[in-house]
């Protein structure tokens, strides 16, 4: 069983709205989504995705367990990490490359916990967050997916991810969703 961690930034919401509804409602792994949206961002994203996804969408709450079959959304203003107990923890450590939350921080901590049962996905964005995290995911045996930069509203993040980490599949989000539905369990 896999856990899917997703990072997006500018243009990420559009990609998420296309990608997440395509996931099978039978998907029984946990999904964790982080997107840089500015103040109030996490709650806004929960509301924006709740009605279009087949899977339940919730904010990733401090100390709460990472649940299978749930889309967890990272809050704004805190780094989000995963403990070995498979529960969420928050931190207000310094921003990492101007970001808090930092996708790299989430990916790195998830990689240590889930190792080869982790899939990381980097979507549209105007910075390089997620690239180092994706590299660590791959190094620990997980899989790396990247949105095709030609489809992304902002190419910088997918491009940085591919050049820094490489990837297992770089494709439009519809193809990535099919891949998860059909080829992963």
């Amino acid at each position: 069983m896999i856990t899917l961690v997703i990072g997006g930034s500018a243009g990420g919401t559009v990609a998420l709205r296309r990608f997440l509804p395509r996931l099978s409602s039978q998907f029984d792994g946990a999904i964790i989504v982080m997107s840089h949206l500015g103040p109030g961002g996490g709650d806004l994203l929960v509301n924006g995705l709740r009605n279009i996804c087949g899977l339940p969408v919730r904010l990733a709450m401090e100390r709460e367990p990472v649940e299978r079959g749930v889309i967890h959304i990272a809050p704004e203003g805190y780094h989000l990490l995963i403990e070995y107990s498979r529960r969420f923890s928050y931190s207000v450590d310094e921003r990492v490359s101007f970001s808090r939350p930092s996708i790299d921080v989430l990916f790195a901590s998830a990689a240590r916990v889930y190792r080869k049962e982790l899939v990381g996905l980097v979507l549209s964005g105007a910075n390089a967050d997620g690239a180092e995290g994706l590299r660590i995911i791959r190094r620990l045996g997980g899989k790396a997916l990247v949105q095709d930069p030609r489809e992304a509203e902002m190419q910088a993040m997918p491009l940085a991810a591919v050049s820094h980490a490489g990837c297992d599949l770089c494709a439009p989000v519809a193809t990535l969703a099919d891949y998860i539905n059909n080829d992963m369990d």
Partner: peptide, 9 residues
């Protein structure tokens, strides 16, 4: 301490 953050630091 929570291990994930402590590890980072």
């Amino acid at each position: 301490y929570g291990r994930a953050s402590l590890t980072r630091r």
